[in-house]
Design a protein around this nucleic acid. Structure first.
Lengths: 392, 392
DNA sequence: CTGAAAGCGCTTACAG
DNA sequence: CTGAAAGCGCTTACAG
């Protein structure tokens, strides 16, 4: 899959080579051609682009004119990057396919935060996904690209030309995690505890979750339903047994579950008796609807539902509304994330706020410090806070 | 600003060089080191990574083990890219700062669409902004990086190592436009008519806008207000005189204004007499609030407002609600975009739907075809359609 | 202010 | 199955 693209631009004089990237079809023009045309050294042409103060304005103008005439579009980025040892690119890696990352409205805000920091320091952002590696078995540094039978495609994070990496992954068992560490580049982990010497950015998942549960408990609810995000990549959707609950691989999910449990136990209730956990198969409103249906079908049904994300909580809301169940009077609902739409749902959603843009900014900041040659800064944990609206 | 980052990784034996990207601080390990260690040719080491079928499993294992032991993390991406002439990266360029692009919720969907196509073909996405170039005067190919006094930073789009470009720009006077064309790379333009031989993706802005206005006119409204997006980069917010209306530089804005006007004139009304246009200074709900205030202060005030984006329409809605003006009974409101939140606003927003994800997919498709060496495919224009909800 | 030389790290076609 | 050689296009320190 990855090799297909490579074919296009070969330069070995193969027939395919002429079908190069240049729409003009003409042979590639280089620094040397400009130098030869003008009878000057290549270094002087280079200086015209990179150190204007190193040559006369007249010569520079002549060089630029000749470049324009010959169709030279400036120094080749790959060659420059090789020579300088720098790409001015920050890689941002997501678990799963890249398009999937955008399914979550919070992703855009996270990227916005990174972008703010990166851009100010002169970096662009390379977005990378983790395309179906799981179907081929786990990636391993000792088993790189092409290692698997049938020519497995390398993870983008493995081969990308970047100066540093922001890695957003949910579990340290994620192939992304291992692949990123193996690169030994300046790296920041997000939503994952990280590895030795790799700073990470996280939020107070547990505290936020505990506050959400305490809020419900304080209103007298004693039967709670949890509509959880996936525990790991195998999630299919369904009530999660205690055994399944012990298997949670995703760090944030684990922490939120722990937060809910801490509040429940502090209130003198029993987790297994008073709380039913539904594990969603995905993080869409649709999954929240399924969770609500399953949770309310238990006996006795919960009087309040903790949605582990706003996306899921929105689905719970939809289900309740469609079935004529009053919120919060008959069933209370609390979400997690506080995305923009939370303030405008019907009813407006009580939820746990997490600072997504700030998360991105901190990740950027931690990476930029390393890129400046500073030692890896300490990790950052951002606060969460409960926003009480009208759903619970 | 851009040069700052470059300093970090120099390799000339300068003191700064040792402060390299490798957190280990050790000298860089290359293919050659592995080859020397094992007493074999560098090409064989290369084959271990790129053509596993070209050497015995035993030798390959030995190479990979040695690589792991010496801390070699795989072929250097920049060198590979230079040698192969390919980066497997698609550049996506936005006008303005990168973080600003994410201010618009539609941007994420657009990127999602590109990502879907790109990822399937083995490409990652490089996101680039157009940082304050306007403050330095227009970019020009004959005046590249560093050309301006004081060392002006080059546009990322000018120096990025990419195989092709998706350029989202609003006006063909945008510095981005010229810079992208100057690269002579396979390119797709979005929301801009494009240049010779450069395919573009657009939507039926005019038809959508006309439908929105017709909808209002059919209900008997004869006094309309338009809350327009910026006409060009100089926008500050205010009622737009006919002269100012003649200056609209952004292609989509021009088309939507034309659509509104066509409907108004087809209904036998006079554009100048019956319609007041407010030009927003930005595309946020806040700007919509200001637009509503200014529009309703005219005499006689409009009974319906055409918001040129949902973001703006949401602001109009907020203003009306805050001032106790009933929607749609006292003032009707129609938006443009149909972002997800439009269905959940109070009241739900009547708006023009544009297929953002599909726009991204088409852009990706048009670029991928060129990357495969095919001639530039024909441009694509996507349909829009009015979604009638309850605001108008 | 200008130029000659070295080398960044890799991949490939080709010869053995 | 393995290796020697050429070269991708550029930037830099240094000498003049």
């Amino acid at each position: 899959m990855y090799d297909e693209a490579v074919v296009v631009k070969r330069r070995d004089g193969t027939a395919a080579a002429s079908t190069g990237p240049a729409p003009t079809g003409s042979a590639r023009v280089t620094l040397k051609d400009i130098a030869a045309e003008l009878g000057i050294a290549a270094s002087t042409v280079s200086n015209a682009y990179n150190r204007p103060d190193q040559l006369s304005d007249a010569l520079r103008a002549k060089i630029l004119d000749t470049a324009a005439r010959l169709g030279y579009t400036g120094p080749d980025p790959a060659a420059r990057s090789l020579r300088r040892g720098v790409s001015n690119v920050i890689g941002v890696a997501f678990p799963g396919t890249l398009s999937y990352a955008f399914t979550d409205p919070a992703a855009a805000q996270f990227i916005e935060g990174i972008a703010r920091e990166a851009e100010a320091a002169g970096y662009s952002l390379l977005l990378m996904g983790t395309p179906d590696v799981t179907t081929h078995g786990p990636f391993s540094p000792s088993r790189p690209e092409g290692a698997a039978a049938g020519g497995q495609a390398p993870l983008p994070v493995t081969t990308a030309n970047v100066d540093g990496l922001v890695v957003h992954c949910f579990a340290d068992t994620d192939p992304l995690f291992e692949a990123a560490i193996a690169r030994r580049l300046p790296t920041v982990m997000v939503d994952n505890p990280g590895a030795d010497g790799v700073p990470h950015v996280s939020i107070d998942d547990e505290g936020g979750a505990r506050a959400a549960a305490e809020h419900l408990l304080a209103q007298g609810h004693t039967r709670l339903g949890v509509a959880s995000m996936e525990f790991d990549a195998t999630a299919v959707g369904g009530i999660a047994s205690p055994d399944r609950q012990a298997e949670v691989a995703y760090v944030s999910v684990r922490a939120r579950l722990d937060g809910y449990r801490a509040a429940v136990e502090a209130a003198g209730l029993d987790w297994e008796r008073n709380v039913t956990v539904y594990e969603c198969g995905d993080n869409r409103p649709l999954d929240g609807e399924e969770a609500a249906a399953a949770l309310l079908a238990t006996d006795p049904p919960p009087t309040a539902v903790l949605g582990m994300s706003d996306q899921i909580a929105f689905g719970v809301l939809s289900y309740l509304q469609r079935n004529g169940i009053a919120v919060p009077d008959q069933v209370a609902v609390v979400g997690f994330d506080d995305q923009a739409a939370a303030a405008h749902s019907t009813p407006p959603l009580t939820t746990v706020h997490q600072p997504m843009v700030e998360k991105g900014r901190q990740a950027g900041r931690l990476l930029l410090a390393q890129l400046r040659g500073e030692p890896p800064p300490p990790s950052v944990r951002l606060p969460t806070r409960l926003i009480v609206r009208q759903s619970g």
